[in-house]
Amino acid sequence: MQDMQIYHPPLEIFPALGITGPVVMMLLSALLTFLCLSHLARRSDPVPQGFMANLLDAMYGFVRETIVVGFGGESMRPWTGFASALFFFILFCNLLGLVPLAPIFSTPTALPAVVIALAAMVFILTLWLNIKHHGPIGFLRKFIPAGIPIAAAPLMFIIELVGFVVKPASLAIRLCANMNAGHMVIAVFVAASKGFWFAPTSHWLTTTLSKAGTILPLLATTLMTGFEIFICFIQAMIFTILAIIYISDAIAEHH
């Protein structure tokens, strides 16, 4: 267990202002998001030229067509800017953590504070949109589904209220736990390869077998890292999809 270094304390860069490694990573992903989206916004040529421009265009098109319009409906099209900013920011945060230089590159989205801030942004946005579109009374009326008996209304109100608060909380826990779990699996495999290599063997045969066996956890680490890249995309997608679903629920008339 001593070989497993899961938790690296954040790199102190400028402690007086509380700037640590994850903060720098967040600023970097915000900068990358800004560069990507401003490139998309300023491009005069309607046909993307080159590999990166095509990749960016495909990802933006995916966010707009599949996530925003596909899950939120045609009326959500003006929210594409918000959704793509959220998607690219979370994606870059997730991917920067996979660069294998542990204390320098870290995953901001593996920290609870970062994902809670992102989920709180979605929560406050849904709250504000609900009150803006339905008024405070209409917002409270949304917690009581139409057509239920009056006796069950207080119970339903409490259940719906809890659901309203828990939905963004599960958004935060899902992203944070996914990022941490992937890192821990990789740490376990790296520790296993260390254990194989430094196994205290005395006979030449067992030593050879143990040294040759190091390749197995290393292969698993490689596979797992590839899977992690996939997870990074999926989690950024899930977060954006759920944020869009909550926002479109907040705007929609209750039924």
């Binding site: 826990i173 736990a177 999809i241």
Partner: peptide, 23 residues
């Protein structure tokens, strides 16, 4: 495929809640 990937994320999130408790 896209619906299945979305559903997988929801299903594994339940295991990850347990993972958080285990940690």
């Amino acid at each position: 495929r896209s619906m299945a990937i979305l559903a997988i994320a929801f299903i594994e999130a339940i295991a990850l809640y347990t993972f958080v408790i285990a940690i």
